[in-house]
């Protein structure tokens, strides 16, 4: 059942229209965690003087990765929504490099999932951003099949 669920989530999150618009790629997923990447693209630039990707694009990567971690958690259902999300931007992503985010469910209750995520570019020693979010949890159980 778990493998089935992971497969469903994997296909689901990167097929979302907005995830496709940002060209998000799934790098890894398991029970309660997910890792996604957002390739560099000139469409995502926020500051033309530096070529650095807009924070709003990094936010979307973080939100999608956190949501994926919740959906991949064995105690949560596939239906989840963001209640709140705080993102700390520690430095600009290096232009030309993909941004990778890894999210982990810190704790999942019957109604809420507490999730943390960290984003990096090619420099694995200096995070670009961290995120902390609370997500809704709807009844767990077997993954529904998607049309």
């Amino acid at each position: 059942m778990t493998d089935n669920r992971i497969a469903t989530v994997r296909d689901f999150i990167i097929e979302l229209p907005y995830a496709r618009a940002l060209r998000l790629e799934l790098r890894g997923i398991g029970a309660g965690w997910a890792e996604l990447a957002m390739p560099y693209h000139p469409d995502l630039v926020g500051d033309p003087a530096t070529g650095v990707v807009h924070g709003g694009a990094v936010s979307a990567l973080m939100d999608t990765t956190c949501g994926g971690a919740v959906m991949a958690h064995p105690d949560a259902g596939l239906g989840t929504a963001t209640l709140d999300l705080r993102i700390d931007y520690m430095r600009g992503a290096t232009p030309g490099q993909a941004v990778r985010a890894r999210a982990t469910c810190v704790r999942v209750t019957r109604s809420i999932a507490f999730v943390q995520a960290t984003a990096f570019d090619d420099d694995a020693d200096a995070p670009i951003a961290t995120a902390t979010g609370a997500f809704t949890v709807t009844g767990g159980g077997p993954a529904p099949t998607l049309a």
């Binding site: 907005y18 973080m62 999608t64 929504a81």
Partner: peptide, 17 residues
Amino acid sequence: LIGNPILPALHGGATAG
């Protein structure tokens, strides 16, 4: 801009951006 095709609803990342 859709993030939940079933409801449908805007993607939380689109709202954030």
